[in-house]
């Protein structure tokens, strides 16, 4: 399942909003999630991404879905730098 992260907004900043986005995603698009299906996170349409939002968002998802989370590559410098800063590898 591919998730377009820009649906949470074009400027993604702050931990509380990152956590809220993850919980909202779990309660909607990821429910139910077929057995074994991967969750592909697509940041390509996001304009501004920051470590605070992303770290919180991914912590919640990793805790619940572990290895099923895949991050798709992006050309956006703020996406690339954010993922590098928090130590998240892209696919």
């Amino acid at each position: 399942m591919r998730i377009d992260i820009s649906k949470f907004g074009a400027t993604l900043v702050s931990r509380p909003l990152g956590r809220e986005a993850a919980l909202g995603l779990m309660a909607s698009a990821l429910k139910p999630l077929p057995e074994g299906e991967l969750i592909e996170l697509d940041f390509s349409k996001v304009l501004v991404l920051t470590p605070s939002w992303t770290d919180e968002f991914l912590q919640v998802l990793h805790a619940n879905y572990g290895q099923r989370i895949k991050i798709l590559p992006s050309d956006n410098p703020s996406v690339r730098l954010t993922l590098e800063t928090i130590g998240e590898p892209t696919e």
Partner: peptide, 29 residues
């Protein structure tokens, strides 16, 4: 939320806007 659109309108390229608005966002957060 108004910072990035304003930067785009004023001639900054998309890549720079992501970084600059991200910087402003993290500092003010």
């Amino acid at each position: 939320q108004r910072v990035a659109p304003s930067l785009l309108r004023s001639g900054f390229d998309t890549g720079a806007v992501g970084l600059i608005a991200g910087v402003i966002g993290e500092i003010s957060d």
